[in-house]
């Protein structure tokens, strides 16, 4: 069976959609982080697949993916540190209870 471009792109977009859905509906901050990771990783898939199928002669997409992975790792580390800080101060990881700042 030959894998076509679409067979990668559709799952990647579904993955992105799952990420957005999870970001909007999840209550637990760790789960929100996981949703964000899904979104970032689906972007990586997009880049690699476009590069592999449409522009096999160059490496731009692959390089972008490498950098995007590094950036995603930095983002996760920072977000986890902040979640831990919030937990230390408030003893909560539920995003719905972070409601002190509102009008």
């Amino acid at each position: 069976m030959n894998l076509t471009l679409l067979m990668y792109l559709v799952p990647s977009l579904v993955m992105f959609g799952c990420g957005v859905y999870g970001f909007l509906t999840r209550k637990n901050m760790i789960a929100i982080m996981i949703s964000l990771e899904l979104m970032l990783n689906s972007v990586d898939i997009n880049f690699v697949v476009f590069n592999r199928y449409l522009f096999p002669g160059q490496m731009d997409g692959m390089f972008f993916t490498l950098f995007a992975i590094a950036i995603a790792a930095a983002e996760t580390a920072l977000a986890l540190a902040i979640i831990i800080n919030v937990f230390r101060v408030a003893r909560k990881v539920d995003i719905n209870e972070l409601t002190k700042l509102k009008f």
Binding site: I32, A79, I82, V86, V89, I95, K100, L101
Partner: peptide, 10 residues
């Protein structure tokens, strides 16, 4: 401050 940071980073 922590709540603001959490909202910002997400």
């Amino acid at each position: 401050s922590h709540e603001a940071a959490a909202k910002y980073v997400f």
